[in-house]
Amino acid sequence: MTQDQGPETYGELNADVYDEWHAGLDPGEAVACLAALAGEGPAGPVLELAVGTGRVTIPLAARGVELHGIDASPAMVERMRAKPGGELIPVTIGDMADVEPATDADFALVFVVFSTFFFLLTQEEQVRCFANVARRLLPGGRFVLECPMPDVGRYTRNQNLEVHQVGLDRVRLVAVRHDPVEQRFDGHHVLLTNGGVRMAPASMRYAWPAELDLMARLAGLERRHRWGGWRREPFTAEGGHVTVYEKPAA
Score class of each variant (00 low, 15 high):
Gln5Glu: 15
Glu8Pro: 03
Glu8His: 13
Tyr10Cys: 02
Glu12Pro: 02
Tyr18His: 15
Asp19Arg: 00
Trp21Ser: 13
His22Ser: 13
Ala23Lys: 15
Asp26Thr: 07
Glu29Arg: 15
Gly39Phe: 02
Gly41Trp: 02
Pro42Trp: 03
Leu49Arg: 02
Ala50Gly: 15
Gly52Cys: 14
Thr53Met: 03
Ile58Thr: 11
Pro59Asn: 08
Gly64Gln: 10
Gly64Val: 12
Gly69Tyr: 14
Ala72Tyr: 08
Ala72Arg: 04
Pro84Trp: 15
Val91Phe: 04
Gly94Glu: 13
Asp95Thr: 07
Ala97Pro: 02
Thr103Asn: 10
Asp106Glu: 13
Leu109Thr: 08
Val113Gln: 07
Phe114Leu: 13
Ala134Glu: 12
Leu138Gln: 09
Gly140His: 04
Val144Tyr: 04
Gly153Met: 01
Asn158Tyr: 11
Val163Gly: 05
Asp169Ile: 05
Arg172Ile: 09
Arg177Leu: 12
His178Ile: 02
Asp179Asn: 09
Pro180Val: 01
Arg184Lys: 12
His188Tyr: 13
His189Asp: 00
His189Thr: 01
Arg198Asn: 05
Met199Cys: 09
Ala202Met: 11
Met204Ala: 11
Arg205Ala: 10
Arg205Lys: 10
Ala207Met: 14
Glu211Thr: 14
Asp213Glu: 15
Asp213Val: 08
Leu214Ala: 08
Arg217Ile: 01
Leu218His: 08
Gly220Trp: 10
Gly229Thr: 08
Arg232Gln: 15
Gly240Glu: 09
Thr243Asn: 06
Glu246Thr: 15
Pro248Asn: 06
Ala249Pro: 00
